[in-house]
């Protein structure tokens, strides 16, 4: 981008970028959580983030629920098998998940059947 004045940058900065920044600041306040970008594979990690999307796939056996969790630094796929209900999993929920980080089909980071805890999302109230 050519050298725009600062106010124009502010006007045209994608809202997504601001959102990521806010998310990252929020995730840093959760104690014991590793930023997702730094969660190394084949290690156990605790990460905190917000559920960005949810997939329910009946073809992968009964009750497969996947949730993409983002924290502004990266994303991790949480995958639960054999569940009959969502039990609190919903979009935009703040969540802390903990488990072994593996690699999925598309090279994405996955935690299979993680332990999870729902927490208030990023609010400064």
């Amino acid at each position: 981008m050519p050298n725009n004045p600062a106010w124009l940058d502010r006007l045209t900065k994608p809202p997504e970028a601001t959102r990521s920044e806010n998310l990252r600041k929020w995730a840093e306040t959760i104690s014991g959580a590793t930023p997702m970008a730094e969660a190394s594979e084949q290690h156990r990690h605790k990460v905190a983030g917000v559920i960005q999307n949810i997939r329910i796939d009946p073809r992968q056996g009964s009750g497969c629920i996947e949730a993409t969790v983002i924290d502004g630094s990266g994303e991790i796929l949480a995958k639960w098998l054999g569940r009959q209900s969502m039990s609190g999993i919903h979009l935009g929920a703040g969540i802390v998940i903990e488990g072994m980080v593996g690699v999925g089909l598309d090279e994405e980071k996955v935690i299979l059947n993680p332990e999870y805890q729902l927490i208030p999302g990023p609010q400064r109230g």
Binding site: Q52, I54, R55, I56, P58, R59, R83, M86, H90, L91
Partner: peptide, 21 residues
């Protein structure tokens, strides 16, 4: 979204559902 997910699990529709923000 939680209700939609629960209804989908209960409905037995054999296709995946993706709930996006």
């Amino acid at each position: 979204t939680e209700k939609l997910g629960n209804d989908w699990l209960a409905s037995g529709i054999p296709h995946p559902l993706e709930i996006d923000d």
